[in-house]
Write a protein that binds this DNA or RNA. Structure first.
Lengths: 196, 196
DNA sequence: TTCTTAACTTAATCTACATTAATTTTTTCG
DNA sequence: CGAAAAAATTAATGTAGATTAAGTTAAGAA
């Protein structure tokens, strides 16, 4: 595994914390590269989430399936983002979410003991993780407010604005499942908007 | 200001990190007690969020007002919880949210320079904050999935289940504004449920 | 390439929830 | 306490979005 595999990941780390040679050594040995085939599961509801994943290539989705069999998407994770069922990972209890790959992907994975060890060995990694979670937390706050205050049309427009590339990259039905509407109604919305 | 004022706060800290005498000294001097009257604002949309608040007594709400003048509540913060517009606080840019007190309240506040100093002086405080944010992040994930997958009735039942005491503590219209429905429809829902 | 399956579209009908507006109940506070 | 304001209820009507079902297009797989 060439060092260059870690380029994106190390660049992401260095956005938030400073890295010397020794840190790089520690990080690259703590994270393991994993290739994921399209549609392959990284986690299924009920299983314990053994790893947190940094996406190096491709696209993952984190979602639930309701009692009627419908899918609801919590998040998409493209390159340079993280994925994982945080609660399950931290408590090592059964996961609420499924995670699978929407494209052929590549991730760096780290398990729970390793991450706790990393916090101890390299305290600034704790800072890195706080910042990462903080940013996700802020993103989620905005999504919550949007969900309770805006129409599906507005939510879609804001999604389009925020993630313009994703729309052409993944099946539309997944965007509907993220917005909280049916694919049928999403189709109606899109037609209505292209007329404008 | 008696040391006992800090009981709840120190107890909260010690749930997640160990504290010695010196830490306690540092924390109690970094956080300032503030009394908040009912309906008093701690933050208004457009202002910079100067402080993060730990609620020692009372209840705060964090919310937005949409272009039609309707309020939408992101969160309630009762005793032992935090409040603040994280994004505004971190970037010192105009806030998205309003924060006000639903009851006569008491908070411990800390400003941005002090919190960064605290991270440096007491690295485990960074750990504490990571854990606090992590927990909020997990709570938010569940709320997002609920919002996009459940009916208002289900969301209310789950709210009732999770925060049974809040329901009797604050005006119903605020619960409606949290669930993402109108007070009128909320009233219909409650009536329907009490018949069952 | 063709076969099969999955994704998307369209339209008719249905329902959860919003809107408007009037009435009643509860809270606030001078 | 009593007056005024805020909160909650009720009912009629309207609409965003769900459901059902059929048809079309696009994508994988042999």
């Amino acid at each position: 595994m060439a060092d260059s595999d870690y380029d994106l990941f190390l660049k992401n780390l260095s956005k938030h914390i400073s890295l010397d040679e020794k840190d790089i050594e520690i990080f690259t040995s703590a994270f393991k590269l994993k290739k994921v085939k399209k549609s392959e599961f990284l986690l299924q509801t009920g299983d314990v989430c053994r790893y947190e994943y940094f996406v190096n290539k491709g696209c993952l989705r984190t979602y639930t399936i309701d009692p009627n069999g419908f899918e609801h998407i919590l998040m998409f994770s493209v390159e340079d983002w993280w994925a994982g069922d945080m609660y399950s990972f931290l408590t090592q209890t059964p996961a609420l979410f499924n995670i699978d790959a929407l494209e052929e992907s590549e991730v760096f994975q780290i398990d729970y003991p390793s991450i706790e060890l990393l916090y101890k060995k390299v305290p600034k990694f704790e800072r890195y993780f706080r910042i990462i979670i903080q940013n996700s937390f802020i993103t989620q706050q905005r999504r919550i407010i949007q969900n309770i205050s805006s129409s599906a049309e507005d939510r879609f427009l804001q999604f389009k604005n925020k993630y313009p590339d994703l729309i052409e990259r993944i099946p539309q039905k997944h965007i509907a499942a993220y917005l909280g509407i049916t694919p049928e109604f999403f189709s109606v919305l899109r037609k209505k908007l292209e007329k404008k």
